[in-house]
């Protein structure tokens, strides 16, 4: 028969152990939810929060720094998201940081990503600040953009083919008469195409990488769930893709203008002859032309050779470099 004192001591230890574990459990959970550390509030307004909920994590450069305190509809097109951020993250987040809605893994919880912009001179964030936001990108939207880009590229190549064919067929003088503008435009177009090409190359590289990791790996889920860098890259790619498609649209606009002009060539020529002002210009143009033609022809040849032009210009550059002068 244990005496009451030792019994009570053992009971006390037992009760204490239970209570301590419960408190530790609750405290640790609370600490994970940023409930017990000093925090400050910032907010951001999104067009679409994709199911973000109260209590979701807020990450800064991929590290948990806080939680979503509330999600409320603000106006018909904005949702206000208030975030509780730990004080210690204050010195790292700048006023111009960009908030976006992301997903933890492929099927994980929604979260708010805060990413800093390159410009480091901006002041630190403060309580009550409103962050700029990035429209969340959805997969179908990304695919839509890709297909428009493809279409545009198709149109451009078609147009370029037309131009080159026309140049080949027509009497070169008449063609050349028109060509101060055309040349300028074309030059510009080529530069643009070059940029676009370069960008597309980067994008396709990225996408290939994405596709590769999609194909390989034990499972799509595995890689996406575990690889946060991957997710980051994907987003990066998508942003670039959007930029690129904008540029391509711009270029294709230019080019179609040019082709239109060339198509109703006759009218233009008639106009050119009657226009005395233009004749003057033509004279000077002709002068310039002497020097310009050579370069232009090169360009045209280049267009014939390759759509992406890169190689050709590289060749030209090498050739130039070889020349003594």
């Amino acid at each position: 028969m244990a005496n009451p004192t030792s019994r009570n001591i053992r009971l006390g230890i037992f009760v204490l152990a239970g209570t301590v574990f419960l408190i530790v459990l609750l405290y640790m959970i609370g600490a994970k939810r940023s409930l017990f550390s000093d925090t400050f509030r910032i907010s951001a307004q999104f067009y679409n929060v994709n199911g973000l909920m109260q209590g979701n994590n807020v990450r800064f450069s991929g590290i948990n720094v806080g939680i979503v305190e509330s999600v409320e509809i603000n106006t018909d097109s904005t949702v206000n998201v208030v975030m509780l951020i730990e004080d210690k993250a204050k010195i790292y987040i700048k006023k111009n940081a960009l908030a976006s809605i992301g997903t933890d893994g492929l099927m994980g919880n929604k979260l708010v990503n805060i990413n800093s912009m390159k410009d480091g001179s901006v002041a630190h964030i403060e309580d009550g600040d409103i962050l700029k936001t990035l429209k969340p990108i959805e997969t179908d939207e990304m695919l839509r953009t890709l297909s428009t880009t493809n279409d545009n590229i198709k149109v451009i190549t078609g147009d370029l083919k037309n131009i080159t064919q026309k140049f080949n067929k027509r009497n070169s003088l008449w063609s050349l008469l028109q060509d101060t503008i055309v040349a300028d435009n074309l030059k510009e177009a080529i530069v643009n195409i070059k940029i676009t090409g370069a960008r597309t190359a980067i994008i396709t590289g990225d996408l290939q990488e994405v596709a590769k990791s999609f194909k390989s790996g034990k499972g799509l889920m595995a890689s996406l769930l575990t690889d946060t860098t991957m997710a980051g890259k994907l987003q990066h790619t998508i942003v670039k893709l959007e930029n690129a498609s904008d540029k391509i649209a711009y270029v294709s606009g230019d080019l179609s203008g040019i082709t239109a002009k060339i198509k109703d060539g006759k009218g233009t020529i008639g106009m050119l002859i009657t226009d005395s002002l233009f004749v003057k210009d033509l004279k000077s143009t002709m002068k310039n032309l002497n020097s310009g033609v050579a370069g232009f022809d090169d360009n045209m040849e280049g267009l014939k050779h390759s759509f992406l032009l890169k190689k050709y210009f590289r060749k030209q550059a090498k050739l130039k470099a070889k020349k003594p002068n």
Binding site: P4, R7, N8, R10, L11, F14, V15
Partner: peptide, 16 residues
Amino acid sequence: FSEFLRQCFYIGYKSF
């Protein structure tokens, strides 16, 4: 109270 403690001992500690 002392009976309560005694029961706590048997119900809690002894079942652990």
